[in-house]
C-alpha cells in the first residue's frame, strides 16, 4: 500500500516529466509546420472526424437550453431574452467546456491509443533507428492539430447550439419566440470580447487535452494494458483538467 507521501511524490514527478515533455514538444512544433501534409491529415483525424458528435451535441444542448430557458424566463415575462440567455450560456461556458469534454473523449482517446499502439508495435523505435525524431514527425503534428481544431469545433458547437438547430429551432419555431427579438437581444448584448474569451478557453483546453493525450500515448507501456491505461487516463485527466481550468479562466475573465 502506497503512503500518501509516495503518492504525492509520484504525482509531482509525473507532472515534472509531463512538463519537460511539453517543452520538448513545443521545441518540435515548428518542425510540424514544415510538414503541412501530415498536419492536414491530423486536422482531419482530430477535427473533421469529431464533427458529427460536436454538431449533434451542440444541437441538443441548444434545444435543452431553449426549453429550460423559456420555462424560467416565461415566469418573469422575459421570453424575448431567450436568445441572449442561450447565447451567453453557450458562448461563455457550455461551448468551450462541452466541446472540450467531447473532444477529450473522441479525439484525445484516439490520439493516446494511436501513439500508444505505435509504441507497442515498435513504430516509434523504428523511427528513432531511422534517425527520425518521433516527437517531430508523430507527436508535434497531432499536438498542433488539436490546438487548431478545438477553437473551430467550439465555434461550430456554439453556432449549432444557438442558431441552426438548437435554441433558435426550439425557441422560435416551436415555442413561438419572436425571431427579431431572439437575434436582436444577442446582437445588442453579446460583445466580441465574449467570443474572444470563448476562443481563448478553447485554445487552452485544446492544448491541454492534446498535451495529456500525446504524453500518455508516448509513455504508454508497450502492451495492451498500457494502451488501455493511457486511453483511460487521457479521458479522465483531460476532463478534470478542463473543468478545473474552466473555473480558473472564468474567475479571471468574468470578474
Amino acid at each position: 500500500m502506497k503512503s500518501a507521501w509516495q503518492s504525492l511524490a509520484g504525482l509531482l514527478s509525473g507532472l515534472g516529466r509531463a512538463t519537460l515533455f511539453l517543452f520538448q514538444l513545443l521545441a518540435a512544433t515548428p518542425h510540424a509546420l514544415a510538414r503541412p501534409r501530415i498536419l492536414i491529415r491530423q486536422l482531419y483525424m482530430v477535427g473533421t472526424l469529431s464533427l458529427v458528435i460536436i454538431v449533434v451535441s451542440g444541437s441538443f444542448v441548444g434545444m435543452v437550453l431553449a426549453l429550460q430557458g423559456y420555462r424560467t424566463l416565461s415566469g418573469f415575462g422575459a421570453t424575448a431574452s431567450l436568445g441572449i440567455f442561450v447565447a451567453f450560456t453557450v458562448v461563455r461556458e457550455l461551448g468551450p467546456v462541452v466541446t472540450a469534454l467531447l473532444f477529450a473523449g473522441r479525439a484525445g482517446s484516439a490520439l493516446a491509443a494511436e501513439i500508444g499502439l505505435m509504441r507497442a508495435t515498435d513504430q516509434l523505435s523504428g523511427m528513432e533507428m531511422m534517425a527520425v525524431d518521433p516527437l517531430r514527425y508523430v507527436v508535434a503534428p497531432r499536438f498542433l492539430a488539436g490546438f487548431i481544431a478545438m477553437p473551430l469545433l467550439t465555434a461550430i458547437f456554439s453556432v449549432m447550439a444557438i442558431g441552426v438547430a438548437g435554441g433558435y429551432l426550439i425557441g422560435v419555431s416551436l415555442l413561438g419566440v419572436d425571431p427579431g427579438a431572439f437575434w436582436s437581444q444577442i446582437h445588442a448584448n453579446m460583445h466580441p470580447l465574449d467570443i474572444w474569451q470563448s476562443m481563448f478557453k478553447a485554445l487552452v483546453f485544446g492544448a491541454v487535452i492534446t498535451w495529456i493525450a500525446v504524453y500518455q500515448g508516448y509513455h504508454a507501456a508497450p502492451n495492451s494494458e498500457g494502451v488501455s491505461s493511457a486511453t483511460t487516463t487521457t479521458v479522465v485527466a483531460s476532463s478534470l483538467a478542463v473543468l478545473g481550468l474552466d473555473f480558473i479562466l472564468t474567475a479571471f475573465m468574468f470578474r
Binding site: 508495435t121 515498435d122 523505435s125 523504428g126 523511427m127 528513432e128 533507428m129 534517425a131
Partner: peptide
C-alpha cells in the same frame, strides 16, 4: 547519434512498418 544511425539499418522483429 542520429548521424550515426543513418549509417545503420534495423529490421525489427515485427517489421515496425508505419501502418
Amino acid at each position: 547519434l542520429y548521424a550515426l544511425r543513418r549509417r545503420m539499418g534495423m529490421l525489427f522483429q515485427n517489421g515496425a512498418l508505419l501502418t
